[in-house]
Amino acid sequence: MIARLLLLLLFSLPAWAQETLPDPQQEARAVTLGEELRCVVCQSESINDSQADMARDMRLLVREKISQGWTDQQILTFARTRYGDFILLKPPLQSNTYLLWGLPLLFLGVAGVMIWPLFRKRKE
């Protein structure tokens, strides 16, 4: 954790304020979306976590689109057509991520089959 720190110095902490939407439900959506969008100029931070200017612009953009009545999916698509899959912190299920999403189940299955012989047969 030491080091998340190092990057932080680059940014002062301007303008936290004036970002929140008045409607708590819309704001909750904005927060959730913010977790799923990567800050494009930072290193593996979401736009919620980043103090970078670019991330703030994105946070404001997300809120603006929400108040214009866009759906979550529309906003994610909007971001994705501009910045590619890279901007999605939760990668979409597609040919190059089948392994990523499938591996937990695959591993569970294979390891499960492998450990089965360790169980004693019920009848002895």
């Binding site: 990567r38 999605l88 912190l89 990523l100």
Partner: peptide, 19 residues
């Protein structure tokens, strides 16, 4: 050469929590 993706908190929350 399979493309550029990001794997972040939402992925880990979606997989690690159920596991």
């Amino acid at each position: 050469g399979g493309g550029t993706v990001s794997v972040g908190a939402p992925y880990f929350n979606a997989t690690m929590v159920p596991l």
